[in-house]
Amino acid sequence: MTTMDSRLQELVERDRSHECQGFGQDHVCVRVVAVAKLPSRFGDFRIVAFWNNRDQKDHIAIVHGDVVGAEDVPVRVHSECLTGDVIGSLRCDCRDQLETALQKIGQMERGVVLYLRQEGRGIGLANKIRAYALQDQGMDTVEANLALGFRDDERDYAIAAHMLQSLGIGSVHLMTNNPAKVQQLEQYGINVSRRLPHLLPPNPHNRFYLETKAQRSGHFIDFTGLPRLQEQSDPVIIEGMPE
């Protein structure tokens, strides 16, 4: 076992009886419960499973290199998207965002992808599909989407902050195109020493972003004529995209 493995394993021991006031409005508390090697096509990772006191969802940290006790650790927060991550849906850019994050971090000295299991929590997936159904009918009403409520950023970032604290990470380089996310994390006591823009490489599925014409009132309409939903609370930036 490498020292990194043993240090992650120690977190499991340490957290067995962990209890705290919890983070955020919902007082979310998490514990590191299991750690294992996870070689992947994107590099050499460790996978860390977390228990939490709010729902039956096991959130995950995908860790590369030595992060326990480290400073300036590159971190990407990804919200689960079954349709994008698993099925490769083109109604959002989640899969590109996840793959790019894993690829980048896999090539760095160290880094973490926090994979938050937001779907199926409460009223997740069915309502997301209802939101798609509304779009299929050409209706993209803000109020309707908010009522469907398939996002909960406040809780996501509270969980993310606790997970980073549990991993003993001193300070992070947050990979996001949304500067507001830096404050969201800092508000929970995480030291964000830098923001790294999260640029996606162009591919046949996102090339339309490179044509400004495709943009209509803040929405990107793809080649099929469907709007691309921004599901990671992170605006999409493709390398070479005009400002």
């Binding site: 209802r130 159904a133 509304l134 009918q137 209706m139 009403t141 109020e143 309707a144 009522a147």
Partner: peptide, 10 residues
């Protein structure tokens, strides 16, 4: 209201 009616219809 159109979008909201469509939403509630589901």
């Amino acid at each position: 209201l159109v979008g909201i009616q469509a939403l509630l219809g589901m």
